[in-house]
Design a protein around this nucleic acid. Sequence first.
DNA 1: CCCGTCACG
DNA 2: GACGTACGTGACGGGA
Length: 937
Amino acid sequence: MAFGKGHHLHLIDGSAYIFRAYHALPPLTRKSDGLPVGAVAGFCNMIARYVEGNGSSADAPTHVAVVFDFSSKTFRDEIYPLYKANRPPPPEDLRPQFALTREATRAFNLACLETEGLEADDIIATLARQAREAGGRVTIISSDKDLMQLVGDGVEMLDPMKNLRIGRDEVFAKFGVGPERVVDVQSLAGDSVDNVPGAPGIGLKTAAMLIQEYGDLDTLLERAGEIKQPKRRQTLIDNAEQIRISRQLVTLKDDADLDMPLDSLEQRDAEPEVLLEFLNRMEFRTLTKRMADKFKVEPPAAPALPAASASAAAPIAQPQADVPFDAAGYVAIRDAATLSQWIAQAREQGYVAVDTETTALDEMVADLVGVSLALAPGKAAYLPLAHVSGENDLFGGTTRAGGQMDVNEALALLKPLLADPSVSKIFQNAKYDIKIFARLGLTVTAIEDTMLMSSALYAGLHSHGMDVLSEQHLGHTPIPIKSLLGSGKSQITFDRVPVDEAVKYAAEDADITLRLWQKFRPELHQKRVTTVYETLERPLVQVLADMEREGVLVERDVLSRMSNAFAQKMAGLEAEIHQLAGRSFNVGSPKQLGEVLFDELGLPGGQKGKTGAWATGAEVLEDLASEGHDLPARVLDWRQLSKLKSTYTDALQDHINRDTGRVHTSYSLVGAVTGRLSSTDPNLQNIPVRSEEGRRIRAAFVAPPGKSLISLDYSQIELRILAHMADIPALKQAFRDGHDIHAMTASEMFGVPIEGMDPMIRRQAKAINFGVIYGISGFGLARNLRIPRAEAQGFIDRYFERFPGIRSYMDRTVAEAKEKGYVETLFGRKINTPEINAKGPGAGFAKRAAINAPIQGSAADIIRRAMIRMPEAIRNLPAKMLLQVHDELLFEVEKGAEDEVIRIVKSVMEGAAAPAVHLDVPLIVDAGIGLNWAEAH
DNA sequence: CCCGTCACG
DNA sequence: GACGTACGTGACGGGA
């Protein structure tokens, strides 16, 4: 039956339904496994109501389609990259529901339409035009004002919530013009929601008035010079191009190539078994029953819930959890057709685990060798791309192994999947993989990371590498990478592993990642750390990846000259040391040094550690030196130079990247239990600054020509957090008044005035303040201040007397750790304290760690929040965030923009706790500018 | 591979 | 009453 006169097409804006359902309903999860299904439930209810309404309507449709947005990228992004740029990505618990709403549509036996590169509105526009031209009628089920341009000539809209008809009159009431001029008005007024620029300062009212007066947009722009109001006239003249671009954005495409004849949209009734099976599987009890009644059939039996004994750790998909690991079930993807099938399945279900195999651990130099995908437990595949055959040719080179897809072809297929915000891409350590993909020009959105989930759930209980997680949570030991690559000197790179072996290893990694994700997801909710994962962990991945890829410029020549100078000085010191010792020995060997000092020279104060070796730490040597012994003094000098040379001036040069000429550290989000970042290869969080010699190394970190480095650091952030958390009025007031906190502490403790205070007294108060953060002990303070233990204990007693809130905070924290097994930061990050109830010497450690963790961790959370907001805040500034050092951020900025950048960054950092937490103390950030890091700091 | 040492916050 | 102690990291060289 060809669509034509007398036919009536209903076009339902499915995407609008989903978002409306999602936001209107409280989050609802499927009972058996915690899968979020609130939006699906709302969607199904809306569709059910729609279908039921049609049954009794005299104006029932003959043809129906539900239309969806395909993904956020459309042809409009080519016209104007900022289009819809201010739209946040869909919430994490909504993403898996996109695919389910498609499934729901089909279960209701309705045509389900979506097309790559088009918005739902374009599909609706095209079908509406076709239907109109064929002589039929159209009703668009939507209240979206962007669709109002389509009204007229047998096309009308229906607001499904208010059940209101929208015809020409209603459009006129909304826009002040008829449907044919709606586009003109929208082009002028712009749209802040979709980020359509329009003309600045012109809103709907003015736009409508102008169009009424001049007839249409082109005439208006031609005759803009005639406008009386000077400001408005200038705006239109200045922004003519932007207004024309806006028109392109708001004009719906009504000639899209759809490949979907109207005839195929003929209305069909739902098939009871199909619909009921779906609703039942979603566990929508009420709706299942309602539909069963409507069909006059028995509702299907509700799916069995997991046994009541199922623990908090119940895996998300009960039956799948029992799938055993079986490498024989993994497949190799060797052609485009197979890859396309896997990708299609990923899109269908809305999630896929992804893992890359490369030639190196350093993602700045590693080349992609293959990609593995997992769709369900046991269902995983490996896509080999750059394996070489085992045999070297005559020249020591290699040849590409057979049976591999062309790399570019494979990446072209993967690209839209990775970029699709409606499909979750699940990684173990996503930062590594997205950096690899980024170097190949592929962007990854909608990231999930099992490593970060583990950190949010299990910080303090175990580490978060794949092997540990697999063993702990899946009871499965993965194939060791060493079994493929070997170790030591004979180690090979992954591209030399035969493909058949690589499949087993690589696909298993994706399989494990997927299973971990399914297990961790409900646990995040149960342990109430979903917000931690979603706001403090996951969003930082992309931010850090970008910082790491940016790198920092380090002057090789400066380091190299320093290395030489250090070597000379060390040689001189070494000769002196040998002479003082009366023999030559390895100064770098603590064992040999101890023997020289204490056995041979018989110096006092020697102590043997648990390994039986003499202790020769800096403290011991300093004591000896202060007693007038030259040898230990020389060794201290030598050690300082040795440290600076080996760890910094030498090693740093090796970390300068060949291609970029810069140093690229790698941050770990899970390195520290408290939530601090850690930095490796190289560690750029421990570049010297405390000694004059060391600061010269910092001066080798420079800004390129035309740029400056700026450094911004939180002042006393941990003490401020302590003042807030322990609620100490005197400390809070001192911070509010901007007073010297250590002097104030000293004044309170010893009753001396701040004016003209003995610096020694202030120093002691400072040590106590730090000690408090660390979980103070008389012993520790005594050692730090080099005073007798009893005296140190006296200070602490007096401190607690003056600030009793500190002691009660410490007691509360330890009690909480004992009771709950974890402590928390201000932002809900949990740090497990499994040793807190231990007996013996370990108890002290655990207590102090428990006291320190909320303070250090809250500070870490605050700078994380600042970093996450930073890219957006400096989007339009010539500035790049390069490094983080716990309470400091380093930026590279174009000359001239320094003050502006400092102003913005400072405000982001100082406001980073809000709105989640309102601190009783202000956060203060100090800033510095320089051509190198030493100057800027 | 562990230990001692020392660089940072 | 004794025990052993400041919190959190990572990199290096020596030595088994």
